[in-house]
Design a protein around this nucleic acid. Structure first.
Lengths: 247, 247
DNA sequence: ATAAAACAGTGTTTTATTTACACTAAGTAT
DNA sequence: ATACTTAGTGTAAATAAAACACTGTTTTAT
């Protein structure tokens, strides 16, 4: 409501974007960033957090997400999706050791953060130029993070699972050319289950945007599988609504 | 990323919540608010906008949404869901006549808004205590709104349709006790289509949370229909993930 | 009392989708 | 040649979806 006189109680906030970057290589992986050590109770604690940054003056939040992706991983053209706004007034105070360290820097009331998740394809992960303090970790082995970042992470994973049930986001995690087994394994990893190979293939073969190529896998020590690709144009024609995009 | 030194380019923003309030009575309806008249090019223009307000210092955005609902409609305990953050740096400038009027009041860089939609049940609409400048309008007859509010409105409607395909949100639009025909008509209005009554009933009768009552409709001048209710507890048990709540 | 109007409520057949289940084929390594 | 590893495929049964039309109950008008 921009047209009322500003209430003296209106919050003045910096806004940040925190990105849960998902990739798949044998397991579901996610990028965490090591923060400078935190002194707390006379101890030095090594702390990890999600990659994130402030929204800048001339940026929309999607540009912020794109910038974070570029800075942290060196990658561009990555799938990103905003999934939730974390706005608890006390969200930075949930872990006092983090808050004590941040507090002196705060000039505004709050820091509200928009949670994004992003999906990176297998091949990119090999040549990701992660910044020095970042690393890929197994999503099952995420330890305690700063602030409310565990909550952000868990919500991202929930939302990814939910979205995958309704949209073929799995292609964002796959390389340009992939095998059906690779695709199946990603679903199995995310949903922590297994599927019957024949039924799985029967089902996905009905997707008109799944294109079989006249090419086979190389570099494997067994029968090579056929490669497939994802036709984005065909997919775009089949859907009516979008709540995501590419940065 | 709250732990880096604040960039001099970090945006400082007030944050607002704009609510697209949906209800159903013969048609899909939504609440619009009339703003004080706007002088532009020496004309007085009557302007409409979505109900909204600033996020206050000690509020999270969901509390803001709850407050807006209470203030504008007098209702509490309403279903609300955040669906998108509108963060275009120029979003207030899209309609210069609006921006000219707001500009002198802005002390911060931007106003970022979180879009919510909310669902109100038929019965409440009758006794909604709308504030004087607000009115229910047919969603098909929403005219030009202030700022980017037409975009917010359209995105809300898209998101509602999308969500309805995957979750039984229709119960939020229905009264405590309702007939199957009422329910069907809401779907038909939102998706602008018609369904076969027998197939529709066969389908929804498989929902375990749809409870037939030993009561029938009253006050109708034809055969009264059986009443049903929605069992929230049964529903909660059948779902795994939530991205919405009640305020 | 009877008829007309308005909506409630129900079943069958066909087609498509889902599920459960196990073997053969192709390439690689030794 | 053999063993190993993963690729690739079919069928039958159960379930779900889609197409389709009439009878029953209550109210209102005459």
């Amino acid at each position: 409501m921009e047209d009322t006189l500003r209430s003296p109680n209106a919050m003045l906030s910096t806004v940040s974007v925190d990105c849960v970057i998902f990739g798949y290589f044998e397991n579901m992986l996610s990028v965490l960033v090591r923060r400078e050590s935190v002194p707390f109770n006379n101890q030095i604690i090594e702390e990890w957090k999600l990659p994130g940054n402030h929204v800048l003056r001339n940026e929309d939040i999607n540009a912020t997400a794109a910038r974070i992706l570029k800075e942290q991983t060196g990658l561009e053209g990555i799938y990103v999706k905003q999934f939730w706004v974390f706005s608890d007034p006390d969200r930075l105070k949930k872990r006092p050791q983090d808050y004590e360290w941040v507090k002196p820097r705060l000039k505004d009331d709050r820091v509200l953060t928009v949670g994004f998740y992003s999906l990176i394809n297998i091949d990119s992960i090999d040549n990701t130029q992660l910044i020095e303090v970042a690393k890929w970790v197994n999503t099952n082995e995420v330890k305690e993070l700063m602030f409310d970042h565990n909550e952000v992470f868990e919500e991202a994973l929930k939302k990814l699972r939910y979205d995958l049930l309704h949209e073929p986001l799995v292609f964002e995690l796959l390389p340009e050319k992939f095998t059906l087994t690779q695709m199946q394994k990603i679903y199995e990893a995310i949903f922590n289950t297994t599927y019957d190979k024949r039924n799985y293939r029967r089902k996905i073969n009905k997707m008109p945007y799944l294109i079989p190529l006249n090419e086979i896998q190389t570099g494997v020590s067994h029968k090579p599988a056929r490669l497939y690709s994802f036709d984005r144009n065909v997919y775009e024609k089949t859907r009516t609504e979008r709540f995501d995009f590419r940065v």
